[in-house]
Simulated scan of single mutants.
Amino acid sequence: MRRSEFERAVEDEFGAAYGAVVTADLGLDALGGRTAAVAIAAGVDPREVWTALCDATDVPPERRYGVGRLEPRS
């Protein structure tokens, strides 16, 4: 997962405004209490951050994998 895919996934799942709040304010136990934004800035793989964010916010499995990717062009 690229950072841009992570950002699209967050916006798709949480919306732009709430996504910004969740990534900036929610400490994630799986990432040592760091927020998603801090973890990404520290170089943690965006897929790992996405998984931790999904676990912390109870995102169902069917909405976790493959999100954030653009549809292939025809």
Score class of each variant (00 low, 15 high):
1 M>C: 12
1 M>T: 14
2 R>D: 15
3 R>L: 13
4 S>C: 07
4 S>H: 03
5 E>L: 06
5 E>A: 13
5 E>N: 10
6 F>L: 04
7 E>R: 12
8 R>I: 02
8 R>T: 09
10 V>Y: 05
11 E>G: 06
11 E>D: 14
12 D>G: 14
12 D>M: 07
12 D>P: 00
12 D>W: 04
12 D>K: 09
12 D>I: 03
13 E>C: 14
13 E>R: 15
13 E>Y: 08
13 E>D: 05
13 E>P: 00
14 F>P: 06
14 F>C: 07
17 A>Q: 13
17 A>I: 12
17 A>P: 00
18 Y>S: 13
18 Y>M: 15
18 Y>N: 14
19 G>I: 11
19 G>Y: 13
21 V>T: 06
21 V>F: 09
21 V>P: 00
22 V>C: 06
22 V>N: 02
23 T>L: 10
23 T>R: 15
26 L>W: 03
26 L>C: 12
26 L>M: 12
27 G>R: 03
27 G>N: 02
28 L>H: 12
29 D>Y: 00
30 A>I: 05
30 A>N: 02
30 A>P: 06
31 L>S: 03
32 G>L: 06
32 G>Y: 08
32 G>T: 05
32 G>M: 11
32 G>S: 09
33 G>E: 07
34 R>G: 02
35 T>I: 04
36 A>I: 06
36 A>K: 06
37 A>H: 12
37 A>M: 09
38 V>G: 05
38 V>C: 04
38 V>A: 15
39 A>Y: 11
39 A>K: 10
40 I>L: 15
40 I>E: 11
40 I>G: 10
41 A>W: 07
41 A>P: 08
42 A>W: 05
42 A>C: 07
43 G>D: 11
43 G>N: 11
43 G>E: 12
44 V>E: 08
44 V>N: 00
44 V>F: 02
44 V>A: 03
45 D>N: 14
46 P>L: 11
48 E>Y: 05
48 E>P: 00
48 E>C: 04
49 V>I: 01
50 W>C: 00
50 W>H: 04
50 W>S: 04
50 W>M: 02
51 T>C: 04
51 T>D: 01
51 T>R: 00
52 A>M: 05
52 A>C: 08
53 L>Y: 01
53 L>R: 02
53 L>P: 01
53 L>E: 03
55 D>R: 09
55 D>F: 00
55 D>G: 01
55 D>H: 09
56 A>Q: 04
57 T>I: 00
57 T>S: 02
57 T>L: 06
59 V>E: 04
59 V>Q: 00
59 V>R: 02
59 V>A: 05
59 V>M: 06
59 V>T: 06
60 P>M: 00
60 P>Y: 03
61 P>Y: 03
62 E>F: 14
62 E>W: 13
62 E>I: 09
63 R>C: 10
63 R>A: 04
63 R>Q: 14
63 R>T: 01
63 R>I: 00
64 R>Y: 01
64 R>V: 03
65 Y>V: 11
66 G>K: 02
66 G>D: 05
67 V>R: 15
68 G>I: 08
68 G>A: 08
69 R>G: 06
69 R>I: 07
69 R>A: 15
69 R>K: 12
69 R>M: 13
69 R>V: 13
70 L>S: 13
70 L>Y: 05
70 L>A: 14
71 E>M: 12
71 E>A: 15
71 E>D: 12
71 E>F: 11
73 R>F: 13
73 R>W: 09
73 R>A: 14
73 R>M: 10
74 S>Y: 07
74 S>V: 11
74 S>F: 12
74 S>C: 05
